[in-house]
């Protein structure tokens, strides 16, 4: 039972993270390959504040605020790049953040990571158990979904899609490209920060190894598999990815084969990305064209 709860919680947290990437990648066409950095910033901010004795809601709020702030800084510097160059620049940013987590020992304890991050407490002062934490994550997921859905169907979301399809057309309609993309990245970073904070309080332990290129690739797979640019795509994609990840654990394999399971998962995910690009680049749920709001 605890195992099922664990799967449910991590799926939801990853779904929030994937939805935030979808806003940037699917709607605005900004291929952010350093998005994991904001997940990490959120996780570290909230974890450090909670370990330092500050109330958890304050920690989560500051995690979101800091992620948004750094997102604005990143957006301001790299937004004049387009396409694959934007991707590479954000990738470099993501790796630089990871090196910071790894080397600034006075703050992050380096490779040892931060253990003993407290779970949120209920009104009675008891730490939340798994079921209650699940409720909390469900509430967050629904909230994020509604907010993003609202954003994506608003004039702002439609403008983003125009920017993605053709920047010149968007400019001709009098849209401020830089401001649109900037707001998009800030919102995406804030939500990624929230996902990171939820992750830190759920796992109660974080280390720089949680925020590597691998995380970027997995969340990219979640978004691309589910269908970029469709509101429920990342949710579905995350469910499929987590299910696959967990079901590989239950294959009838000999025990001394255990160390091969993680690379096997990686091979399956890599192959899925390649096959998706070859066979169905639009993902499982294709974006609606010409429907309501288009």
């Amino acid at each position: 039972m605890d195992y099922l709860l664990h799967i449910a919680i991590s799926t939801l947290i990853y779904a929030i993270f994937a939805m935030s990437l979808n806003l940037e990648l699917g709607y605005a066409g900004l291929y952010n390959f350093g998005h994991i950095a904001f997940f990490g910033i959120g996780a570290y901010t909230s974890a450090l504040m909670a370990v330092g004795g500050l109330p958890i809601p304050l920690g989560i709020t500051s995690a979101m605020a800091l992620a948004g702030l750094i997102g604005a800084g990143l957006a301001f510097t790299v937004l004049r790049l387009t396409g694959d160059y934007f991707g590479i620049a954000t990738l470099a940013f993501g790796e630089m953040m990871r090196l910071l987590f790894l080397n600034e020992r006075w703050l992050t304890k380096g490779p040892m990571g931060i253990p003993g991050i407290p779970r949120p407490t209920l009104l009675g002062g008891m730490p939340a158990d798994l079921l209650q934490y699940l409720m909390f994550t469900v509430a967050c997921t629904i909230l994020v979904f509604l907010i993003l859905h609202r954003l994506e169907t608003s004039p702002f979301g439609r403008a983003l899609k125009v920017v993605r399809e053709d920047e010149f057309v968007a400019q001709a309609f009098g849209k401020n490209l830089l401001s649109l993309k900037m707001r998009c990245i800030v919102v995406g970073s804030v939500i990624a920060g929230l996902a990171g904070a939820l992750w830190a309080h759920y796992m109660t332990y974080i280390s720089p190894n949680d925020f590597t290129l691998q995380g970027t690739i997995i969340v990219l797979l979640c978004v691309v598999l589910g269908g970029k640019g469709s509101p429920s795509g990342p949710l579905l994609g995350t469910c499929v990815v987590v299910l696959l990840q967990e079901s590989l654990r239950f294959l009838p394999i000999p025990t001394d084969f255990g160390r091969h399971v993680a690379p096997l998962q990686g091979m399956v995910f890599g192959l899925m990305l390649v096959l998706l690009m070859l066979r169905r680049p639009q993902g499982l749920i294709a974006e609606l064209h010409g429907g309501r709001g288009a």
Partner: peptide, 13 residues
């Protein structure tokens, strides 16, 4: 680019 990222992940693993 995404296909090559997938390929890289596949080969590395």
């Amino acid at each position: 680019l995404i296909a090559s990222i997938g390929l890289s992940y596949l080969l590395r693993n």
